[in-house]
Design a protein around this nucleic acid. Structure first.
Lengths: 236, 236
DNA sequence: CGTAGTATTGACTATCTTCAATGCCAGTGG
DNA sequence: CCACTGGCATTGAAGATAGTCAATACTACG
């Protein structure tokens, strides 16, 4: 994996300034000025099931999801495995590893996923603009922290599932339009693992939600209703 | 609340460099060099029940807990109120507010609590060293994010309570010695609100844990056993 | 067409919540 | 000093919810 420029796929395996990336708006919300000080390297596409980070291995880099979805798995002390989170477009993966020194979870692609590896401040001569990067990383991490305040613990199963789906839809749809279709890339079992529910309970909850017309969901496909779009407005 | 120096209580209501604070080790783990670039202002002691931040109000500042414990409460859309987290010595409060623009939770003292208000980078002429601050804030936020991956959703009530108590003990004891006593400052009901359990379930779980000798707890007082101390080593 | 993974449904059981009552303890006022 | 009050902790009993086990569909893919 040499670093020299290749004539095609110009942005692959080479650090580039995020300000020069056409997809930057998907990652950084607000547009970047030229010479943003944020450098990244587009990584190979992760096919479904591919592992980006493995729990326990030493910290390598912080990644950002450009497209697709990663699930974060953790093996507990007793050997049980649980899904502790999902990461979609624009979300960070591995920042906890930076703070702790090693990966605290395994990150695996739930569907075909594209990521960028962020160039870490201080690593090379590019540290000059690292203040901008640090601020943006902090903002993203803080928002992820805010989101992780599980709004569902203690709620009945139906509410948990509804909250998760609505949140996931909000996070992963491209723009904020109504009438869009969003696909839940994970299985019911994976969804249950994350929510702390049995697979069957998830299924029954989804059936109820469809029945009560709170969610327009068929298989893994969710249609965004006006209600969900409205809630989405309160989101950063 | 004027800013001028007073002859006594020299560190109150005046920004100072954290490197000059005797309690800095409690906040920042690793020692700080002189001119750390991290400035803070010691705030008035919060008596039990006092509110530091109120959900919905515009972002003011990031705070750090020096001593005591804050609980973070959130009023949901349906009006129900839930405790979404606790913050003890060395942990940040309000960083989500910076990212979102407004406080996402109410922060209330569960016991007498001391906090510092961090001087925000770029606000004044002190921004020079803000890189150090940003890095430390990012590290703390990342660790809080890592911790928030609720290791208990889906576990039986007993395991949830055990996990919470052990985690809380680990976070809040002053040094890492065995044989120490730690006080849980919150009521059983508050504990249940956080874990998503009824007050009675918490009581029964604690009774079971005491019976099975997994926790040495009496009332609100927990004694640290060898097992808990051992787990603590894996912590940052 | 067969297989594997996933989704769904039903029946039974374990767990947790709810409701209700009681005990404990500190603070308050007569 | 003592009764009274309010907040918190504890316990029991009944009912609701979610988990488990088992069987059956659905779907993609070779």
């Amino acid at each position: 994996m040499q670093k020299g420029k290749t004539s095609r796929g110009a942005r692959r395996h080479v650090d580039f300034d995020c300000a020069d990336c056409l997809a930057a708006r998907r990652c950084w919300d607000a547009p970047l000025e030229e010479c943003s000080g944020i450098y990244a390297r587009r990584e190979d596409l992760l096919p479904k099931g591919a592992v980006l980070l493995r729990q326990g291995e030493p910290f390598g880099a912080v990644h950002i999801v450009v497209r697709g979805c990663l699930c974060l798995r953790e093996t507990m002390l007793d050997g049980a495995e649980r899904i502790v989170g999902y990461r979609v477009r624009g979300e960070l993966v591995g920042i906890e590893g930076w703070a702790r020194g090693h990966c605290t979870y395994t990150a695996e692609a739930v569907e075909t996923t594209m990521t960028c590896r962020l160039s870490w401040p201080g690593a090379s001569g590019k540290a000059a603009g690292s203040n901008a990067l640090l601020q943006r990383l902090l903002a993203k991490t803080a928002i992820q922290l805010d989101r992780s305040t599980t709004p569902w613990s203690g709620l009945p199963a139906i509410e948990r599932v509804a909250a998760f789906v609505e949140d996931f839809v909000r996070r992963s749809r491209a723009d904020h339009a109504t009438g869009e279709q969003v696909t839940l890339p994970m299985t019911r079992a994976q969804l249950g693992s994350y929510l702390g529910l049995a697979e069957e309970t998830v299924v029954r909850a989804l059936a109820q939600l469809r029945l009560r017309k709170r969610l327009d969901i068929q298989g893994r496909c969710v249609s965004v209703t006006a209600r969900q779009a409205a809630h989405g407005q309160s989101d950063g």
